[in-house]
Nucleic acid binder design. Sequence first.
DNA 1: ATGGCAGTCGCTGACTGA
Length: 253
Amino acid sequence: MKIATWNVNSLKVRLPHVLDWLAANRPDALCLQELKMEDKAFPAAELEAAGYHAVFNGQKTYNGVAILSPHVPDETARDIPGFADEQKRIIAATIGGVRVISAYFPNGQAVGSDKFEYKLRWLAALTDWLREELKTHERVVLAGDFNIAPEDRDAHPDWKDEIHVSPPERAAFAALTELGLADAFRLFEQPEKSFSWWDYRMGAFRRNFGLRIDHILVSQALRTNCRGCTIDKTPRKLERPSDHAPVIVDLDL
DNA sequence: ATGGCAGTCGCTGACTGA
């Protein structure tokens, strides 16, 4: 079973890339972030024609998440229960017995800003919710754009901003792993300077000036099922790419 | 020291992203 995550930075613009990537990789679940569209604009018909069902949680201009699957998603849920939020950042569904969560974590803009405070509040609410979710679901996959580079090796050495690498953000990431969720990427030997996002500016992709901020976390019960986890840089090389690359975990299920 | 790129909204550049 292959589960992937990809921040597409506008599904409207990136739909051709997504369709090509689905055809080439045939994941059992693809979690998308930054749809930047309302639900009524979601390209459900095009995806159905490609053999993929979709559940989605969108809004105008910003945010928006989805899960695509060739299997029929079950038990679909949206947003973090009890956390009042206009921003559409969470969708969950059960696929093949796995609780899959597509998450678009807040950016945070700058340490100390209002958006940063929102990011930390959101992270605390997510962690509280997942603690409960893990009581009722043994197999959980949390996949998405975390907007956190968990360790120094996950950020290019020249990264000069504090956002994405600050101690409070890293502590929040650690709190998620302390629930028993493992960073699937780090269960395996990986190349040095493995990143999932590169700025559009400054030739950042060419220079591999990036961050590893897109992650797939797996619950304790799934850890031994992980056969591999990789970042696919192929679509980042296309014309008009997303600034993020897909991350894929291969599960023995 | 700043902006550099891209997408959205919508018509003038502002806002956001990371």
